[in-house]
Design a protein around this nucleic acid. Structure first.
Length: 488
RNA sequence: GGCGGCAUAGCCAAGUGGCUAAGGCAGCGGUCUGCAAAACCGUUAUUCUCCGGUUCAAAUCCGGAUGCCGCCUCCA
């Protein structure tokens, strides 16, 4: 089954064909390290994490490059404000980023290059552009001349005249054309700088990606990704720089993930609605956040709210309850009962769900559809557990074994189901109690009291205690083994 | 002003020409249970914002209207 990918430049799904058979080179624009990562960064990271995981599962050898912008105006500003070196800022936030990504279960990319470590590559590339007449130097700045590159605007579907008509471009009389963008900026007094043929300065924002993708993935590679806000101007400019220099296409597929909105509003500093990843993870299991993101297609906008996160939590709980059921598979010699019709039926359905899941991912990484099949297996597990209550343990084990395999597969692609089910529920309880300021020991005491009342068949008292707990959103579950509880 | 996207049940969300319009959350009825919870079974959109058109056939294609959103400035 081929993988189909929506290509931003053509606005169509196209069959993926790698430059080199069996290999994939993918470059994703990472963060500018000047602040804590928020939920928007989380989405981009999770989306491309799943893209890479699925391509690997499909047998491709993937080289995944995600850069750090560690020199930039915003980093310099913050360093000035704090009175520290710019490297203090970039290093601090790269570390925070790495911690957040690890917490989210995002696999580390193959290569995570930093802009400051590729100055020579950038300067060389700018040199080529000047030499070929695509760029010009003015007073220590170097600008790319957009009208020299005739394909400018092709990725984002714009043309220069239209953009100039709307014209909210910055005033800068050094530029020949207002749409020209900086490849190199002369440094001001007291700012960090690197030596270059044009004097002391630092690179423009876009050039680092052109230089680093070329170094690690070659002149033309397979997939270039990022948030949809990067389509213009960042990716447009990358294309201009790279293709002007090499005369070859930069990437064959451009993928862009949609934005995270907050309660239907754009996330922005002025609205004060920026949610750092680490804040959210204080209150929710990281997989809740992943599930929330993956329940929508990666190109659609996603609307973050406490309610929607709670819904995802409920869904994840449903999955983990099924995982808990199949955690202990009875040890039996396989074979005996596996051919009985009921068992075969379940196994066939699970196999089919896994195939459908893979097909959904092949279709432009449709995780939302894929999750439908995950929940189908959840239902099959619960269903077979009931139907097989009195069945031979061999039958049950056969179905559970198949389901376990399926969940391992789903989890490996989506980056969820990595927790032990008992651990998951214990953790969930602790988190929810913390959120609501509930005392776990007190709850346990009340439950103990109810248990005594139940043994004495004092249903009235038992129910009274349960109602009291219910008012605190504590939900009880009685079983033969005893009473367990969770937070609603 | 220019470019683009979206509109599917109470909510979230797949589906882009043809089997009964996935799935999750919430609700309702039933089974189970001392009663519950969980789980299971059943149920909740004769219809996909509206109006026209193409077609044997449209949520799906085309045209128009309305509403919402994004980009054009740093941004995942």
């Amino acid at each position: 089954m081929p993988v189909n990918i929506f290509h931003t430049a053509t606005r169509k799904k196209e069959t993926f064909k790698p430059v080199n058979d069996g290999m994939v080179g993918i470059y994703v624009c990472g963060i500018t390290a000047y602040d804590i990562c928020h939920i928007g960064h989380a989405r981009a990271a999770v989306v491309f994490d799943v893209v890479v995981r699925h391509l690997r599962a499909r047998g491709y050898r993937v080289t995944y490059v995600k850069n750090f912008t560690d020199i930039d105006d915003k980093i310099i500003d913050r360093a000035k404000k704090e009175g520290v070196a710019f490297t203090d800022i970039s290093e601090r936030f790269i570390k925070f980023h790495n911690d957040d990504m690890a917490a989210l279960g995002v696999e580390t990319p193959t290569i995570t290059p930093k802009a400051t470590e590729h100055m020579d590559d950038m300067i060389a590339l700018i040199g080529v552009l000047v030499e070929k007449g695509f760029a010009y130097a003015v007073d220590g700045d170097v600008y790319f001349a957009v009208d020299k590159f005739h394909q400018y605007g092709r990725l984002s579907g714009r043309n220069l005249d239209e953009m100039l008509a709307g014209a909210r471009v910055d005033v800068n009389d050094k530029k020949k054309n207002p749409m020209d963008f900086a490849l190199w900026k002369a440094s001001k007094e007291g700012e960090p700088f690197w030596e270059s043929p044009w004097g002391k300065g630092r690179p423009g924002w876009h050039i680092e990606c052109s230089a680093m993708s070329r170094r690690y993935l070659g002149e033309t590679f397979d997939i270039h990704g990022g948030g949809e806000d990067l389509i213009f101007p960042h990716h447009e400019n990358e294309i201009a720089q790279s293709q002007a220099a090499t005369g070859k296409p930069l990437a064959n597929f451009w993928m862009h993930n949609g934005f995270v909105k907050i309660n239907s509003e754009k996330m922005s500093k002025s609205l004060g609605n920026i949610f750092p990843i680490r804040e959210i993870l204080k209150n929710y299991h990281p997989e809740v956040l992943r599930l929330f993101m993956l329940q929508s297609h990666y190109r659609s906008p996603v609307d973050y709210s406490t309610d929607s996160l709670n819904e995802s939590r409920a869904g994840l709980i449903r999955c983990y309850a099924a995982l808990q059921q199949i955690k202990e598979i009875p040890e039996v010699s396989a074979g005996n009962d596996e051919t009985s019709t009921g068992v075969k039926d379940y196994i066939d359905k699970i196999t089919e769900a896994v195939e459908n899941f893979d097909a959904a991912l092949d279709d432009d990484f449709n995780t939302a559809r894929g999750l439908g099949y995950v929940f189908e297996v959840v239902r099959l597990v619960n269903n077979s557990a009931i139907a097989g209550k009195n069945a031979a343990t061999e039958s049950k084990a056969a179905v559970f074994r198949e389901a376990k395999k399926a969940f391992e597969h789903f989890g490996a692609i989506l980056g969820i189901f990595r927790d032990d089910p008992d651990q998951f529920f214990a953790n969930d309880k602790k988190m929810e109690c913390g959120k609501r300021g509930l005392n776990m020991a007190e709850i346990e005491d009340l439950i103990k009291g109810r248990q005594e009342a139940r043994i004495a068949r004092n249903w009235e008292k038992a129910d009274e205690i349960r109602n009291r707990l219910a008012a605190l959103h504590v939900l009880l579950k009685d079983s033969k083994e005893g009473t367990t509880w969770s937070i609603e």
